[in-house]
């Protein structure tokens, strides 16, 4: 029973697999760099893109510094509003990752709780949870996220839309993605529930919740970690898509998706850099997460394949 996620993660097999997979090493290197860049955005950025007083309209629509007419102060050029693209991307990456991580955390918390609950209690509770999960799964994720987003916007007064956007996004993406966690955890819980140590704990008078948390939870965390990694890529992509569609982060607080949306509006003005650079960062981020997730899935638990 001491076979917790931690000890499994430190298992030499995992390290061996990591050392032998160049995609795993490359994608984790890329991810660490991107995470660091996002975390240190205020230090690395040359400008605060949210502070209008730092923008000089004369410097708008400048191409990247190496192109003709570029300005060395603006490495990747500027947009219509003279925002430094390099700084915008750093802050946008930061927002995209915050939304991504927070919604994955929400989905995991929700899914794990519901899965434990359903698996442990069974009966009507379990049937209800699983039926809702089935219905959710039969609709494309982006549609569900849009719908939750729309409902939240319908409830909130319009003047609060911009401020609440980040919370609405986290909620919408989190509520869309919990099903996989719930299914996996429910399955493992049902297996664990009948094992002797759980029965023993019950006989010894430990409460139901106590058993779940202390005994079952550590055993189901391995698969949850794998799902969470794969879901991070999906969450970042969903956030970008919603923001691109104009129902995500507002232009005053742009995420990568919002930046691409803004760039898309100036496509015909020849400002290709405004759309290309955020897109490249987004694609690299998602690709790296997906590759790492694929590797982790194969390395940690071949059964999930």
């Amino acid at each position: 029973m001491a076979d917790t996620t931690l000890s499994r993660a430190l298992d030499s097999d995992l390290f061996w697999s990591f050392r032998n997979s160049w995609t795993a090493r490359l994608s984790s290197l890329v991810l660490i760099s991107l995470f660091l860049a996002a975390a240190l955005a205020p230090v690395l950025a040359t400008q605060d893109p949210y502070d209008i007083s730092q923008l000089f309209l004369l410097d708008s629509e400048l191409p990247p510094m190496w192109a003709e007419g570029g300005d060395p102060r603006y490495i990747l050029g500027t947009d219509q509003q003279a925002r430094d693209l390099y700084s915008s991307i750093l802050y946008g990456l930061r927002l995209s990752l915050i939304v991504g991580f927070a919604s994955v955390a929400l989905a995991a918390a929700l899914g794990v709780s519901l899965g434990l609950l359903g698996g442990f209690l069974g009966g009507v509770v379990d049937a209800t949870i699983m039926r809702v999960a089935d219905v959710l799964l039969s609709f494309p994720a982006i549609l569900v996220a849009l719908l939750v987003n729309g409902i939240a916007r319908g409830i909130l007064p319009p003047e609060q839309h911009a401020d609440a956007a980040i919370w609405v996004l986290i909620l919408a993406i989190g509520l869309t993605n919990w099903v996989q966690y719930a299914r996996t955890v429910r399955g493992s819980t049902m297996v664990e529930r009948n094992k002797e140590y759980v029965q023993a704990a019950r006989i010894n008078g430990v409460s139901g919740i106590g058993i779940m948390i202390h005994h079952i939870l550590p055993n189901v965390l391995g698969p949850v970690l794998v799902i969470a990694t794969i879901n991070l890529g999906m969450a970042v992509l969903t956030e970008a898509t919603l923001s691109f569609l104009g129902v995500g982060m507002p232009a005053t607080q742009p995420s990568l998706g919002t930046l691409i949306r803004i760039g898309n509006e100036y496509l015909f003005s020849g400002l290709w850099w405004v759309v290309i650079f955020p897109s490249v960062v987004l694609v690299v981020l998602v690709l790296a997460v997906n590759l790492l997730g694929d590797w982790l899935r194969d390395a940690l638990n071949p059964k999930l394949r």
């Binding site: 849009l146 729309g150 909130l156 319009p158 691109f244 129902v247």
Partner: peptide
């Protein structure tokens, strides 16, 4: 579902674009 995104990118006057407008206006 993905037509929603395509219709936004290409300003295609379909149901998806209508839906996106509805979502953003509640």
């Amino acid at each position: 579902a993905f037509a929603i995104i395509t219709e936004t990118v290409f300003q295609w006057p379909g149901m998806g674009a209508l839906f996106i407008q509805a979502v953003s206006f509640g």
